[in-house]
Each structure stands twice: as C-alpha cells, then as structure tokens.
Design a protein around this nucleic acid. Structure first.
Lengths: 130, 130
DNA sequence: AAGTTAATGTTATAATATAACACTATGTAA
DNA sequence: TTACATAGTGTTATATTATAACATTAACTT
C-alpha cells in the first residue's frame, strides 16, 4: 500500500509512461519517449527514477537495468521485491506471494543476521515461451 | 560443486584476482589490476567474466555491477545464488542455507510456474556496521 | 590434416549513470 | 509575510559499464 506522494511534473510524466508500458523500460528509452514533453537530459530522468524507486511507485529490475511500475499492493515500499523474468521474451512480472514474502522477511542467516530489504529475481520461461 | 574446467590464461588471471579479493570487484578495477599481466582491453575482461560466471566460478552482484568468487560448494553453478550486502561497508557474503535454497528451488508462482534459476540479494547492516 | 569451436587482440562505440553548479518551487515556522 | 530549509529543475560535461565487428590464434575432434 502506497502512502500518497504528490509527484512533481517530471516524476508524474515518467511514472505515467512506465505505468502504461507492458514491459520494463530502460532509462534512455524513457528519455526518448518524454523528450516531446520537455524532459531533455538523462539526469532529469534518473532523478525522477530515483525518487519513484524510493517511494515504491516503481522498481528497478537489477539484472536488466530497467524499471517497472509497482502493481503489488502488499509490497513494502521497495523493501521487499520479487520478480519473475522470462529468459526468452523478457516479460517481467512482480510476484506477490504472502508465503514467499513472509519466508524472506523472516529469514536469518547463520549469524542470526536479519535483513531490512531484499530483492529476488527468478528466471525461467513464461507460459507463452514454453 | 564445480565441474573442473580448464581455465585459459586470461580466465585464470582474472579468476585469481577476484578470488583473492576480500570484496566484490568491478570490471574496470579488474582491468586496471591485470594490465601489468598483458590484459589491456575491457573486452578481454568482460569475456573472461562472462565465461567464469557461466561455469559458476564467480557470481555477479547485480545491484553493484561487481563480481565475487563462488565459495559455496552447494551452489548449483550460477543457477541459484543468494547474497547478503551491507549497505554501509558494502561487504558482500554468499549465503549458503539449505533451507533457503530448498524453499526457493521449489517455489511456484500462482500459475504453477517453476523457475530454472534465481538470484536473491539481501540488504542490511553487517555485524561491524550495526 | 582438415574442420570446428572457443578464445584472443584490437579499435571503436554504445549504453548506463553521475558530478557540479546555478536556479526555482514548495513547505514550514517565526 | 518574510526568511529559512528542503526538494526539485535545467544544463553541460563526464564517468562508468558494456558490446559490436573483424582479423587472428589456439585447442579439440575425427
């Protein structure tokens, strides 16, 4: 569940674009798409992306350097993320599994260390590509 | 458990360097360190890294664009990796937990999809930094 | 010895991301 | 309502990470 943040103009433009995209978007592809709206420089994009990630409106898919909108109301603001990634078509889906998130949130390593955050990426073939 | 691969000269040089490093190494830092051994170009480094990742001798820490040697004899050749990362000192440790790897290897999503591979990164503060 | 596959060396360039600085907008508190 | 702090903007330049393309060499296979 997202605390409401009032997005600024740039943040809103970039969030809307990512939110409408059926697939993760890369920073320079975002840049290309918003140039007609007056966002001209990479830094403007990266700044908006940083903020959107911070507040949990989008997530970064680390293995792909790409960004998707968060559609998981149970995800704890960028603190606990899990994705499935198809290695053929590159489709990415956010996983929301109560069991998984509970298991990982409570995971302790050998030293009893608990973690404040995690990111999990599963790879395989999606239905279509199998 | 690693199948034995005969590393080539470049692969061996680069593996040795990473293996001796107490922390993950970045590609261009590797390049800098092996230039005296005759490896002059980024591509030579990236090619060796690709191969080493493929055969499971090293892993890439995706959130850091850095590489560490695999010290986990139970890790299934780059198919199932988990790390803890300290957000202050950036210390990275490979996690080997039979419970965790069993849980993740058997994880199925809502559609019953099983995955052939995963990568998990936990973030928090290490003992020293707490 | 010929064919195949993997690795190398090299130059160039693509793709991803941040530094630094001057300026503007917004919210908060006296 | 002014002044202060904080966050966001616009801009130029540059750093960092990664791959394309091509000619060559090494190693393995039959």
């Amino acid at each position: 569940m997202h605390k409401e943040h009032n997005l600024t103009k740039n943040q809103q433009i970039i969030f809307d674009l990512i939110d409408k995209s059926p697939e993760p978007m890369k920073a320079y592809s975002i840049l290309f798409n918003v140039q007609k709206k007056g966002i001209k420089a990479p830094l403007q994009v990266y700044r908006a992306l940083d903020k959107l990630v911070q507040i949990g409106k989008i997530h970064k898919i680390e293995s792909r350097n790409a960004f998707i909108a968060c559609h998981n109301s149970s995800c704890q603001v960028a603190k606990a993320t899990a994705f499935s990634i198809c290695e053929i078509c590159e489709k990415v889906t956010e996983i929301s599994s109560a069991g998984l998130s509970k298991y990982l949130a409570n995971f302790k390593d050998k030293d009893g260390m608990k973690y404040s955050k995690y990111n999990l990426e599963f790879f395989g073939l999606c239905k279509k590509c199998r």
